[in-house]
Amino acid sequence: MDQDITGELPHLVLSEDGSYYLQGGHNEALGKYVFPLMGGDKEFFQPVPLKRQGTVWSFTVQRFRPKTPPYAGPDDFIPYLVAYVDLPGQLKVEARLVDIEEEEVEIGLPVELTVIPDINGTPGSVMHAFRPLEKRAV
């Protein structure tokens, strides 16, 4: 039987209603989730949309520019917030936090998935991030 274990699956997916979701993997029998869903995981995990809302589980500020490679951001560096976001009943995912000042962030803060322009500068390309729930645009 053919087995594609090398194909990279998208971790950020645009759904038909125009919103994005993070794609993880779910093994129902084990009750386990993975993120991202890598080619080698496909034997054990079914693709599943992850929850869009969660809470900040831990966070830090990245204050120095990571080395390139692998970092693909611009030379002009602006520190950024990074968090593990707890998606209840699923898992915690690592993501940037946006639309918030560092002194406003605390463990337990409710956040939701959003997208920001990809730091690699590719026009139209986006990357995932989370932002505070109460700051949602109406």
Binding site: W57, Q62, E94
Partner: peptide, 19 residues
């Protein structure tokens, strides 16, 4: 994961001790 600036040991250790 590397391109977007997550692949740093310092970042992990900071978030682990923060929690």
């Amino acid at each position: 994961y590397g391109a977007q600036g997550y692949m740093l040991t310092t970042q992990f250790f900071a978030m682990k001790i923060k929690r």
